[in-house]
Design a protein around this nucleic acid. Sequence first.
DNA 1: TTTCTATTGTTATATTATAACAAAACATTT
DNA 2: AAATGTTTTGTTATAATATAACAATAGAAA
Lengths: 156, 156
Amino acid sequence: MNTETNLEHELDAAANWCLQRGEKLTDLRREVLSLLLAHDGSIKAYELLAELQKRKPTAAPPTVYRALDFLLNVGLAHKLGSLNAFVACRELDHTHHHGLMLICDRCRGVHELSDESWAERLAEDAARLGFRLSQQDIEIKGICANCQQVEQAGEA
Amino acid sequence: MNTETNLEHELDAAANWCLQRGEKLTDLRREVLSLLLAHDGSIKAYELLAELQKRKPTAAPPTVYRALDFLLNVGLAHKLGSLNAFVACRELDHTHHHGLMLICDRCRGVHELSDESWAERLAEDAARLGFRLSQQDIEIKGICANCQQVEQAGEA
DNA sequence: TTTCTATTGTTATATTATAACAAAACATTT
DNA sequence: AAATGTTTTGTTATAATATAACAATAGAAA
Ligand SMILES: [Zn+2]
Ligand SMILES: [Zn+2]
Ligand SMILES: [Zn+2]
Ligand SMILES: [Zn+2]
């Protein structure tokens, strides 16, 4: 199965995901999600806009922000507040409330950890302060394995 | 001990904290930190600028952003990426690497949890993926105890 | 068809943050 | 003190991120 086929497969799955929630993955939204998925790490809204404009010259900021809002709300993408960047969700299977997003300082890559035990422990600790968690991703920053290797190679 | 005296006390402690690190808490930086401390929840850069301009009409965006950068670097303040907002650190005693910042969706208030065990467990889980954490605050969103009460009162 | 709603197009503007360079303050050496 | 170098602050302009507001279009329901 090549990349393109796989991408279409993911997009179809996403469309289905939307339908199950009574929402529609329109052509535009599908296009934006496609660009997000095609991107390895996270991507910024205006980078996404530039990409989108290659195929759709009429696109303007609201075009991409509206599509992103939709994708965020339906759970097909995540916003990384600390980077002002966006990333496709690749773990639709798990309902990953409170997923841990490990964000690389160097390459802006994201590793998503859907570990339920974190959600529970966090919720417990917060509850002790009377704090009720909203569904929310947790962003943790550092340097990914790959970038660490590059770093070491550079030092050699 | 009244509020004002207490604030001056905190500012003096902050000045000392800086000196120990070979940095200086200048008048301007002290003023900005003072405004941060006087604020209960988190505050946005341009709100801070407006406050600052009451006493220092010459202040411009770089004035406040430079002061904030300094405070962030020396550990006297935190940036909340998900809100584009800033908050004074009130736990200088602990070296709270990876402090948990519980951010209220409603009031923008912040409860800072300096729990070392979280730092360790997070680091372990991340290390399993080859991910090395950088010193970083972890932002968790929800609704604080106070705002929950207000909410219930409204429903009654 | 008619009507209503959701989506997209379009223009303008708000919000957040930094670049670049000049001036002033401060410290160090002579 | 004078001269020099460094850090901090002032100032203007602009970059980067995001939304408001309203018109046009497309889709669904009546
Ligand atoms: Zn996800
Ligand atoms: Zn990386
Ligand atoms: Zn702190
Ligand atoms: Zn609150």
